[in-house]
Nucleic acid binder design. Structure first.
Length: 266
DNA sequence: AGCGTCACCCGGACGC
DNA sequence: TGCGTCCGGGTGACGC
């Protein structure tokens, strides 16, 4: 569930308690949590490294350490918290980083989809990701070019991390609704004004969600408020905020997809 | 290139 | 109440 706005919020919250801390050791309770390198090597290599900074790339958290880069993908149900080592253990905390100051960073993940990576460079893991939609370099023209250079339905295209990084099911539906574009519309058929509308709605939707500290659904991610601002996502049968028509739910590429049949014509 | 399908997981919803 | 079953969702692998 955590998409770009949720990951961005977590990154901002983790900086104060993590940056400058030395990782004395890591505990891996579930070895498959470590995607790269093997769990044993991960534990050996990370010990003694200091957290120099935390950034985000797509849906990955990127911890710059003194020697390596630690990347964490939360997938569906992952969450990261910094607590005192005295805090009662969490049965879903499959990987724990023990800091020198008596606190620990816990990667808690009920559904066990999330993964941690230790690499020399972030690119070793995130190299295939598409552009960051909120970067200054991601212009309306860049999006128009992406849309023109493929012939693909908008919904799966927005979800493809190698095309644009960080957009998931919620913000794909919300952006398409705001841009008044049908999720099955083929990318290369968009007029310049429509591509610009999608660019604007993507940036607006993501920025607004970051301002609301992301969306909390499925009890997975708790701090967000953006779920109260959904216009289409998870609102099947409820009125479209723009026209009042009932929001419809279809399945596109196996993913639940919500849109307004009146505002978003094919 | 793009699409469909499966696998990975488990909590929650649903049906009986 | 309790049990069995299904679903969802991010992504990578794989086949068409």
């Amino acid at each position: 569930m955590p998409e770009l706005p949720e990951v961005e919020t977590i990154v901002r919250n983790l900086r104060a308690p993590c940056v400058g801390q030395r990782i004395e050791r890591a505990t891996v309770k579930w070895k498959r949590h470590v995607a790269m390198p093997g769990a044993a090597q991960f534990i050996r290599r990370i010990a003694g490294q200091t957290v120099l900074g935390i950034t985000r790339r797509g849906k990955y958290l990127v911890f710059q350490l003194s020697e390596d880069v630690l990347l964490i993908h939360l997938k569906m149900s992952g969450d990261l918290t910094v607590v005192s080592a005295a805090t009662p253990p969490d049965k879903h905390a499959h990987t724990v980083f023990h800091f020198g100051n008596g606190h620990e960073l816990r990667f808690s993940d009920t559904r066990k989809f999330g993964r941690v990576y230790l690499a020399r460079r972030a690119d070793d893991v995130t190299g295939s990701l598409g552009p960051e939609p909120l970067d200054d370099s991601f212009t309306a023209q860049s999006l128009a070019y992406i849309l023109q250079s493929r012939r693909r339905a908008l919904k799966p295209l927005l979800l493809d991390q190698t095309v644009i990084a960080g957009v998931g099911n919620i913000y794909a539906d919300e952006s398409l609704h705001r841009a008044r574009l049908h999720p099955l519309r083929l990318s290369h058929t968009l007029a310049a004004a429509e591509a610009r509308a999608l660019w604007r709605s993507l940036r607006y939707t993501l920025n607004q969600a970051i301002r609301n500290q992301g969306s909390s659904i499925d009890r997975v991610y708790r701090q967000g408020q953006h779920q109260y601002h959904f216009r289409a996502y998870d609102r099947a049968g409820q009125p479209c905020p723009a026209c009042g028509a009932a929001i419809r739910r279809i399945v596109v590429g196996g993913r639940g997809t919500h849109y307004c049949p009146h505002c978003q014509r094919l």
